[in-house]
Each structure stands twice: as structure tokens, then as C-alpha cells.
Amino acid sequence: MSPRHQPVVGRRAVLKGMSLSALGLGGVLTGCGIPAAKQSAGDCISTDESAQQKTLNFSNWPSYMDESDEKVNGKTVLPTLEDFQTQSGIKVTYTTDVNDNAEFYAKVRDQLGSCQSCGRDIFVLTDWMAARMIGLGWIQKLDHAKIPNVDQQLLAKLKAPSWDPNRDYSVPWQSGLTGIAYNAKVTKPVGSFTDLLTREDLKGRITLLSEMPDTMSFMLKLVGADPEKFNDAEWSKALQKLEDVVSTGQIRRFTGNDYVQDLNAGNIAACEAWSGDVIAMQADNPDIKFVVPEEGLNLWSDNMLVPNKATHKGNAEKLMNYYYEPEVAATLADWVNYICPVTGAKKAMETVDPDVVDDPLIFPDEAMLAKTSAFMPLDTAKAALYETDFNLAIGG
């Protein structure tokens, strides 16, 4: 099995484990019911020592960096990261300690909430948590003069999220899609979420995701609401839609990406699915098909962020700029199997791995991207309320 075809489900499994307990009881996402402390650039001043200190502490998700088959002194080689260190002279301490967005938040909230160093210069978090930390004033503003590759190469669809419209604080590491997958060996094609939730031949043979933003994005679409901008009344209507479907017995269960095993085996016929999982499954099972639902796709990103009091922001910006070099981005995407956010990487992939160039789950075209939407950013209290609603609806 080549690195490209190694399963990457570990990272998304823990990512998609966001639950009521992870969000925190009482809608505050902090211990003891104390609201998270906001900061501001004027109040929490960071000093950059990159010119004197060629080091960088980088926290990322497991299985989210290209790896070589070889080992040196018993350690796995990370080719693009090794090349960055050689080119830049910056020594990177790379740690895969982001196992869950909310869990990671819990690790750093006390320090960042009190304007102290969290011991990291750069970390990678998903849209909803990136938005929350930016809103709390915990993230340093980037110097775009130092990341020209990002400005030149970032996919247009990812340039202006509502929670960071100028990408002043965040740079996408990788992105992904949420849609439908089905096993062609056990069912005919499934073309829409309406089909998934109503077809009699699929009753009890489908799964939906336990990730609230993913599943509720589709429920909002089904009731005519926009998942990027909706109100409480529309939320209630979508929630009722979900409860109605649950009551019919159409849904076998709600899952993380443990749907992979059941779909491969034919224990379920179809499901809500993440693009990276589907690529990994298709390597060994050609019967697994990914569908762009008639209702559209969910698009998400995991983002590089520089926290307050990190003392190597300039070094972090060099790393961001490096990973937006097309050949580097293509090498990374070839291994991790998710959407590459770098426009020039598709051309570079012709040399890196020609078999991947036309894979729409790594390089979606404009027509596919036009069918995507993201989930509306929520403040901490609203997120906890909606998560409570969702967990009650799915029986969690």
C-alpha cells in the first residue's frame, strides 16, 4: 500500500468526534462554567524572535503530514518538512497532539485566555474552532507581505470565510468535502439527501454523521434554509426534519467515520461521508462511489493559526509560505488525500503523481466547488445550545 493509499481515518475520526461534552456544559466550553477570556492585540502583545531563534513548535493532527516509507534512527521521515528545515535553517519540533478540536482548546484555553504562551508557534484547527479562537482575540494577525505564495495560490473558494474575510489570521492547511457515498454492489445509485432519507429500499441501511455541522447543514438545505446564514426558526424546522426522519427508522445509526467498515462490507448501503475516507476506500474497493448530492456539498478546512505570545511568528509565516509552493502542496496532498487549497498544485501533480491529477476529491473543479457551502460560525453559547438540540434529536 503506497503512502497515498494509507487510510487517513484517524485524524478525521477524532475531528468528527465533537460532542455535547466536548463543547462543555452550560454553553461556555470552559472548565467550572467560567466564560473564556477575550484578549486584544493591544492588551496581549507578542514579541517575534524569529530573527534570532531559528526554531518553530508546530502542533498538527495525526496522519496529516506526508511520510516516507523509510525510517531514520527509528523515526518516520517527513519529506516536505525535512526539506523546509534544510532550506530555511529553521528547526521544527513537530507534534501530532491535536486529537480533537475541543480537547485541544482545553489544553490551551487557560494560557491563551490569560495572555500567556501555550508553548506552540503554530497549530491547525478546523473552521469552527479557528473562528472561535479568532473571535476571542487569541490569534496573531499575519503579515501578508511574508506569505506571498498564500495570496497568489489560495483557492478562490477559500479566500474569504465569514469568520476571517481577509485571511488575516488563518491559512488553510487542507480542506475536504462532505457528501454521500454508496456501495454499488448492494444498491443502485443514490443521488440526493432526499433519496438517502426517503427511499424505502434504503430503510435501516444508511448512516448519518454524528458531527452536528455536517448533518444539520443538509437538514437546513432540505427545509430551504442556507446553512451559511440561518436563524433560530429555520434551525428548529431543520431539527424537526431530522427528528421526523429518525422516527421512521430510515437511519441505522449516527457515526464518526467508522461508517467506513460497514460501507466496505455492505452492512450499510449508503451514508453521509467525507471525501478523504472515500478516496482511501476506493483504493481497495471500486464499488465505493462518492456522490455530489443534488442539495450540494459541505466544504470545510483545517487552518494554520499563530497563537498569542508565540515568539516565532516569522518562522511560522515562512512555513505557511513554503507549503503554498505548488510542488510542495502537491506532494502533501498526494499523501493525505484531502482537497489541496493551492491552485498551482494540480499542475505540479502531473510530475508528482499523474494518477491523481484528475481526482475531483483532491482537485475539485469550479463546477463542484460552486455546489459547496460551509456551516455558519456560532458563538460558544449558541454552539452548545445547538449541540444539545442535535444530541437529543439523534438520541445521543
Rank of each mutant, 00 (worst) to 15 (best):
T86L: 07
M18A: 12
A51S: 13
T76A: 12
G27N: 12
L142S: 00
A329S: 06
A345K: 05
P341V: 04
P360Y: 00
D284R: 15
V223H: 00
S50I: 03
A367W: 09
T95A: 14
I139Q: 02
R11V: 07
K188R: 14
M320F: 10
S21N: 09
D287C: 12
H144M: 08
T380S: 07
N101W: 13
Q116Y: 13
Q282W: 06
G296A: 04
I268E: 04
N99K: 14
K188C: 09
W335M: 12
P165G: 08
L297Q: 00
G119E: 06
P227N: 05
K188F: 05
E243K: 14
Q85S: 04
P62S: 11
L378G: 01
Y182I: 00
F375L: 04
D365C: 13
V260Y: 04
Q87D: 14
A374Y: 04
N60H: 15
A370C: 10
L242K: 02
C118E: 10
L222R: 08
I279T: 14
T76Y: 08
L20C: 15
E70W: 11
W300T: 01
E228A: 10
G42H: 07
D359E: 11
L112C: 11
C32A: 14
R253N: 09
G179Y: 06
A41V: 15
T47D: 09
V98M: 09
E200V: 11
R252S: 15
G89K: 04
P227R: 04
F193W: 09
D379M: 04
E234V: 08
L392D: 06
S236H: 09
A160N: 06
S236E: 10
S117Q: 02
K289A: 06
Q282Y: 07
A283D: 03
N298F: 11
A22Y: 09
P165M: 05
K237E: 12
A280N: 12
K91F: 02
E67H: 11
G249R: 03
L155N: 03
N267R: 11
C271I: 05
R12M: 14
D262H: 12
P165A: 03
L220Y: 08
Q240G: 08
E243M: 13
V246A: 09
K185W: 07
P341F: 02
L239G: 00
T194G: 15
Q85E: 07
E70P: 08
G24H: 01
I34N: 11
D214R: 03
P341D: 03
I268C: 08
L177I: 13
A13E: 14
W173Q: 07
I134T: 10
N99S: 15
M18T: 13
F375H: 02
G249S: 06
D151V: 13
I206P: 05
M133P: 07
M368I: 15
N285W: 01
G224F: 09
D379L: 03
C118N: 13
A393K: 02
L155T: 02
T311V: 11
K157D: 07
V342W: 02
Y182V: 07
I122M: 11
T311A: 13
P7H: 14
G89N: 01
F363L: 04
L305P: 02
S162R: 09
D110S: 11
E295Y: 00
G176E: 00
V328G: 01
M65H: 10
V291D: 05
S59Y: 05
N264W: 10
M216P: 06
